[in-house]
Design a protein around this nucleic acid. Structure first.
Lengths: 146, 146
DNA sequence: CTTATTTAGTTATCATGATAATCAAATAAG
DNA sequence: CTTATTTGATTATCATGATAACTAAATAAG
């Protein structure tokens, strides 16, 4: 999260960046602007997902299972390879998706410690319902921002 | 936070965006890429701040007080106008900065409900110590990313 | 003036991120 | 084979974000 509503002035950045010779002022200004915009868009998307009682993480879990080319299920550890989130948070969020009926869990025949997670029909329906508005929300933000 | 390590393919975006006519595929792809990069840089910055037992929010609080042109103190409500964060979180984090000795709090002579928050010498020293590395960290990330 | 509304700050509670530590099964090493 | 290490999942605990509801003081409205 990047909280600053007004970014540091070019002068202020310049005082530390080009003065100390560690980088380019414009590039740093661009990075700060990127972080601010991503925070704003992130908040807008969180609001969009909350209409469906979902979160960005839940959405991403559904997405990575759905888009897998050769199977319709993944292990928790495989989801973890695809999502940059800690194991306990993934575990808790998967548990919540199971509880809400968007995922089902079956034993893994290869490894008795593991399970395979697949989308239910409700999960597929939710994903189909949420995707167009997701891209539209992003598209709207990009058009309307200065 | 944007967790997806691999962004949706252009084809997948296209299926929802240009097909439904609600936006431009390239623009959406650019937005997703921006969110991913901002997440990654955010994690790197969090790691940098944690070396100083600080957070991005604490840093931003110190910054907005320090950069104020006509005064060396702000009310909590004034900080809130400058930072996109909820009142309770700001309150808690200011309390923590007071406790750590980076801020001091004095009564506001205009309004008995309010207080004025100013940097201590330790706060100014911390800010001076952390700023160059902050910009350098951002600069490094921008140079090294693909 | 008195009452109503707004503003500044605070408290309680919840949601969602992280790390550290643990258990059991699978795999590698001796 | 037996022991050591790695891997998959889980639990406990903490950090840091949010909203809702509250108090007290300041300000506006009647």
């Amino acid at each position: 999260m990047f909280f600053l509503r007004e970014l540091p002035t070019r002068m202020m950045i310049d005082r530390y960046v080009s003065a100390s010779g560690v980088g380019d002022t414009d590039t740093v200004a661009q990075a700060l602007s990127m972080m601010r915009e991503a925070s704003q868009l992130g908040r807008i998307l969180d609001a969009y997902f909350s209409n469906y009682n979902l979160s960005q993480l839940k959405f991403h879990i559904l997405i990575v299972i759905d888009r897998e080319p050769n199977t319709d299920s993944l292990r928790q550890s495989e989801i973890n390879q695809r999502l940059d989130v800690s194991k306990p948070v993934l575990h808790r969020t998967v548990a919540s998706l199971l509880d809400e009926g968007f995922l089902v869990r079956n034993d893994d025949t290869q490894d008795s410690r593991a399970h395979r997670l697949a989308l239910t029909d409700a999960g597929k329906t939710m994903l189909a319902a949420i995707l167009p508005g997701y891209f539209e929300t992003i598209s709207d933000y990009m058009e309307k921002k200065p």
